[in-house]
Design a protein around this nucleic acid. Structure first.
Length: 781
DNA sequence: GAGTTTGAAACT
DNA sequence: CAGTTTCAAACTC
């Protein structure tokens, strides 16, 4: 924030010096500035209220004003543009700055109207920029190159950004450069605000632009209107509280988040015509992102995630983004909390509110509140979510809900500090959750992540089950993993355990009990954070893996199974194995069955007939076999058997998906356990990586784009197959073991769970790669 | 919705 | 570590 440059603010003259007007003014005695004043006013009546301001730092002042104007009148851009074009580039600066941002966003379609005063010229630039990953930077590059001195003066923080952009060296059009320079000045002006707000964000922005271009396309193209709407509604707030960076961040988050749903909505297909406004909105949005990113930077850790957040154009990404933002936000919050607890709390609450509102707007939740609660695991979900489309979007929202909820739990420890934690468990907004995570630092964050990870599987499941929460249980035996994942959707009915024992699914899942729960004397609520945490610790002390995912999914290549391999969750196994005696491992009493995994050597079950894989080694039964067995065991009609089969298959498929998510869960679990046990530090980094890391990014590209859930599945499935290699690459010991198992059964040491999981999915692959970097970030205790 | 069955979790 | 008890989910009616 503090940049020596500002001292130089006076230098901006250099910019103007070029202009005859300035020359003239300079020639004039200072006494006469009146004319200059006029001139300045002409530049932007708004911007230059007083001469001094102009001389000292006209850019800033003007910029702010212009900014306000725009925000107040998002639709006005045209006006401002016209005025700007008239001669007041300064006023346009905002646009230019925005353009930089927008360039990434708008890219393709956006170009036209937005290019502001220089629009005619800029379109090229924009496109050009678009072409380059650094698009956002590119615009600046040109301008910056020409106007570096000014830039430096205006904002030190920008300088780095500019430099980067210049390095990228896309400043192609000399002619454009001038225009660009002007625009840049604008940008600078705007940038000044940003700088003041964001100081460090510039870097992030750069990154954003490249990634953002693609992701935003979708957003920009279709959802722009919705976005704009949303932005418009939000804009006033923003304008009101420029100083309140936090709010901006929140708004952004909400916006982003909100965008997803709308974008997803096919109905919300807006012609490019709307883009200009949208672009502006987007710009504002971006700006806000920038701000948020800056803030985060201030916080230190979260920068990367923010970038992604801004970037993600995909719905999924957005969802992720949102989370990321939340995390970051949280981190920022923490800092803010540390510094100014009150403000932070307020922010959190606001953010939460906004988020909730966004959710509402974005995706009308299904009537069943449960769904919302249910799932959405954090990271794992992200991946899944990424893959998912509009449907997924819903799920994502759910995730958020659940996630918040889950977060609340883990957060509690950390969050205890934050007032937000006290907020309702159900809605403890992401922000709160994220904040909690951040607060806790590694530990809580980990837990939260775990939860999130758990949920991913669930998401998929839920999609199937959405209709009835119960169905989830009934229909989806598999996902206990999810269950761990499952936890997301869990509703308990505890009467005596006070929801403080593993008997309680909610507690076991690391989630607070919510409305849907019909538990009695429940202590598994944010109000009782201390109790919950203490209990958890106690349980973990007894069994460090108590909160770890029960089902471990191995990334077995599974040639064993042959064709069915794809179906079979064979790779997955229950952590401890079951002990069934009467259910023949054909009912959900059996955790293996419930988790959609086959029984393994570790199982002590009797008369195992687990359709997912018998203890004796017969892995997945063929469908017919499974049916037969089921028929025998259950005495059900053939039709029922088929249904079961189908369910199983679905489960398997889901399972794969879930499995992928499960891995994250496992990770998350570790994470969870970590906080308490402090054993393994969860790859919190992995979590982050998922959310923010480039890996995520790639994953997004890969899977997120896919509109169809099937697509997602495919993607996930494919990754799994691939994953083994990846896992191997990771060097996870588990892989070898898995494959080694003769029967195809896999004995998975609990430890393995964590390691392999991340890599299993294609998205994860990337994640894994990215992960390495993160570890440093995450303090492993 | 009430009651039964089941097996995990907790306890000794 | 094994046996028993407690518990709540899963299941049945």
């Amino acid at each position: 924030m503090d940049t020596p440059e500002r001292n130089q603010i006076g230098t901006p003259k250099a910019k103007f010096e070029d202009s005859p007007v300035f020359n003239y003014i300079n020639s004039l005695s200072p006494i006469k500035p009146v004319k200059s004043v006029h001139i300045t006013q002409t530049f932007s009546s708004l911007s230059f209220a007083s001469l001094p301001s102009v001389f000292t730092s006209p850019h800033v002042s003007s910029h702010k004003e212009s900014r306000f104007l725009r925000r107040h009148n998002p639709s006005d851009p045209s006006k401002s543009e016209s005025s700007l074009e008239s001669g007041n580039k300064v006023s346009t600066n905002e646009d230019a700055a925005e353009l930089c941002i927008n360039s990434a966003e708008l890219h393709e379609d956006c170009v036209p109207g937005d290019s502001i005063g220089e629009a005619s010229v800029e379109p090229r630039n924009l496109k050009y920029d678009c072409g380059s990953p650094q698009c956002g930077a590119t615009t600046r590059c040109g301008t910056e190159a020409g106007c570096e001195s000014e830039v430096a003066d205006l904002s030190a923080p920008l300088v780095p950004y500019v430099q980067k952009t210049t390095e990228n060296g896309s400043s192609d059009d000399g002619a454009h450069l001038q225009n660009i320079c002007q625009s840049e000045q604008r940008n600078e002006l705007t940038g000044c605000d940003w700088e003041s707000l964001i100081s460090g964000a510039s870097d992030l922005l750069i990154f954003d632009s490249p990634n953002g271009s693609e992701p935003f396309r979708g957003i920009m193209q279709n959802p722009l209107d919705s976005v704009t709407r949303f932005c418009n509604s939000l804009m006033p707030r923003l304008s009101q509280n420029e100083t309140a960076d936090e709010q901006n961040m929140l708004v952004l988050d909400t916006i982003v988040y909100g965008e997803q749903p709308e974008t997803e909505d096919p109905s919300s297909q807006y012609g490019e015509a709307s883009q200009p406004e949208d672009t502006e909105l987007m710009q504002d949005h971006l700006n806000s992102c920038m701000v948020s990113s800056q803030i985060e930077k201030d916080d230190n850790k979260v920068e990367a995630p923010m970038q992604f957040n801004c970037k993600p154009g995909l719905n999924l990404h957005r969802g992720l983004r949102r989370r990321c933002l939340d995390f970051e936000m949280v981190g920022a919050r923490r800092k803010s909390l540390d510094n100014v607890p009150n403000s932070s709390s307020s922010m959190l609450s606001q953010s939460d509110e906004k988020i909730t509102t966004n959710d509402k707007q974005l995706v009308p939740m299904k009537p069943g509140g449960e769904s919302s609660r249910c799932i959405l695991p954090g990271i794992g979900l992200h991946l899944n979510a990424l893959a998912t489309t509009s449907k997924d979007y819903k799920t994502i929202k759910r995730e958020n809900m659940a996630y918040g909820r889950q977060l609340s739990l883990p957060n509690l420890t950390a969050s205890a500090n934050s007032p937000t934690a006290g907020q309702g468990p159900g809605h403890e907004s992401f922000s709160s959750a994220s904040s909690d995570r951040d607060v806790d630092g590694t530990e809580n964050g980990v837990q939260l992540l775990q939860d999130a990870s758990q949920e991913p599987a669930f998401l998929a499941n839920e999609e199937f089950n959405q209709n009835s929460p119960k169905k989830k249980r009934h229909v989806l035996p598999k996902f206990e993993q999810a269950g761990e994942t499952e936890s997301s959707c869990k509703r308990c009915n505890c009467k005596k355990s006070k929801c403080l024992k593993l008997y309680c699914e909610c507690f076991a899942a690391g989630v607070y009990c919510i409305e849907p729960c019909s538990c009695q004397e429940c202590f598994n609520k944010p109000i009782h954070e201390d109790t919950v945490l203490a209990t958890r610790k106690q349980i973990e002390s007894r069994n460090p893996l108590a909160f770890a995912p029960k089902v471990i999914r191995n990334a077995d290549s599974v040639p064993e199974y042959g064709e069915e391999s794809s179906k079979t969750p064979a790779s997955a196994r229950h952590k401890r194995g079951c002990n069934c005696k009467k259910s023949s491992c054909l009912k959900k009493y059996c955790e293996c069955y419930q988790g959609g995994v086959g029984c393994s050597i570790s199982c002590r079950c009797e008369g195992c007939k687990n359709t997912f894989g018998r203890k004796d080694g017969s892995f997945m039964l063929t469908e017919t076999e499974a049916d037969e067995e089921e028929a025998e065991a259950c005495g059900k009609s053939v039709a029922e058997n088929h249904q079961q089969k189908n369910e199983i298959q679905e489960n398997e498929e889901q399972h794969q998906d879930s499995a992928l998510p499960t891995t994250p869960l496992r990770l998350s679990r570790q994470l969870v356990s970590l906080p308490f046990s402090s054993k393994n530090k969860p790859p919190r980094s992995s979590v982050f990586s998922i959310g923010s890391s480039s890996g995520l990014y790639t994953s997004q590209k890969l899977g997120i784009l896919c509109p169809e859930t099937k697509f997602e599945r495919h993607i996930q499935a494919v990754p799994e197959d691939e994953m083994p290699e990846i896992l191997q690459g990771d060097g996870s010991p588990s892989t070898g073991i898995k494959t080694a198992s003769p029967n195809g059964k896999r004995v998975c040491p609990p430890n393995r769970e964590f390691a392999p999981s991340p890599g299993r999915r294609a998205g994860r692959k990337l994640i894994l790669q990215s992960i390495p970097s993160f570890p440093s970030l995450t303090p492993q205790n």
